[in-house]
Design a protein around this nucleic acid. Structure first.
Lengths: 214, 214
DNA sequence: GCCGGAATCCGGGGATACCCGAAAACCGGC
DNA sequence: GCCGGTTTTCGGGTATCCCCGGATTCCGGC
């Protein structure tokens, strides 16, 4: 008889056979149980909200809504639920993106069963987990520029963003910095592209949240 | 022979003849001395930082950077320096704005020489000074709604402002609140008019400063 | 020296914001 | 019931933003 409750898991993968394999492995454990399965990102967000599982095992590439965006939404809507990302890519960019979206772990699909279980349990405890094959690449990449999203920007871009956050228009900034309006526009576009923002309001909000002003 | 140091004063007014008149009056006093003159708000901020005067006599209407914004920046950058605002308007709104920006005194331009000197000395001592003609209007206005600028807005306007500050566009807000885009635009315009703001960036900045988000 | 990133400038087009004026419906208070 | 303020909608004009290309210069690293 167990004293603590089992870890409740939601499986999100578009291949039924993969989900089935995971369920076999997980349900054989005393401390783990699968409470649901979904085949795309949209369903993952919805069901995660309804069931409030401890862990979502999330495939990165899924139809309708990819795993990265689904992770972002789950992290925002259900912060208690932790996401373990699953992918075949050991490329640092993939890892970086989904970790930034809020995933607690990143597991390669060709991992051994033991690693899979370790990853699930680690994420359930709130720890991080990275597949050995990617952890090196990730950590160096991380140290480079993922710690602070502001580090994604060049110094000139930060400077421009600061003016934007102070409520200035492109024209005013161009005058203040003795630049062409075109240049300021280009910087603004670069900033938005890098940070995935799409309006002046979002830019200002970002600047505030990251301590660029106030 | 004087034991204490003279009060050091910076004159900021875009009319040279006005500055000259003030200098004549001030330099004739044993306890006061003019240490600099500037003709616009931008210079006022710069020179105030360099010289660190005790008092800045600041015209409200000046080119390049108006006296209100200049006062705001000086108050932020050089808190030891006190600002005495100078204006021809006895309208409560003007007074309110510049006092909120950090000015310690407000003097009407048609005041007598004696009042002028009283005001400068009062501000230098850290006291407040209001021209008799405006003090009544100001105080009642103050009690009404100046404590919190957000009180100038209606509840609907605050609601819209909050969405704007979260980076949403008019169209998104209209959808969220089941309104026409025209309506949201109207609210946005009203908010800008009431708060004297002129861009999305300034709106977001204001919302942040006044605790509407984050 | 070549390469890549940063910074600068340009053109054009569609979307959105900004500003003007106007008007109707609602709702609470005198 | 009239009045003032709020909320809602609309039209039109201009400015600014947003996005798509492309282009040049400069500079530091391999």
């Amino acid at each position: 008889m167990q004293t603590t409750k089992k870890t409740r898991i939601l499986l999100a993968d578009d291949h039924a056979v993969v989900r089935h394999g995971f369920r076999m492995i997980l349900d054989a454990q005393d401390d783990l149980e699968v409470v649901g399965e979904v085949a795309n990102g949209r369903e993952a967000v919805q069901v995660a909200t309804e069931l409030g599982p401890d862990v979502v095992v999330m495939d990165v590439t899924m139809p309708e809504l990819n795993g990265i965006e689904a992770t972002r939404r789950i992290a925002a809507a259900s912060p208690r639920t932790r996401v373990l990302a699953l992918s075949m890519h050991k490329d640092a960019v993939y890892v970086r993106e989904i970790l930034r979206a809020g995933a607690r772990g990143y597991l390669l699909k060709d991992s051994a069963e033991g690693d899979f279980l370790s990853a699930v349990r680690a994420v359930a405890r709130g720890e991080g987990y990275l597949s050995p094959a990617v952890s090196d690449a990730v950590l160096t990449d991380y140290r480079k520029h993922v710690t602070n999203p502001l580090d994604l920007l060049t110094s000139r871009e930060r400077e421009v963003l600061q003016w934007i956050a102070e409520g200035k228009t492109n024209k005013e900034i161009a005058t203040a910095l003795s630049l062409s309006v075109y240049t300021v526009e280009a910087h603004r576009g670069k900033i938005m592209e890098k940070l995935n923002l799409h309006s002046t309001g979002e830019l200002v909000r970002f600047a505030v949240r990251n301590g660029l002003i106030d």
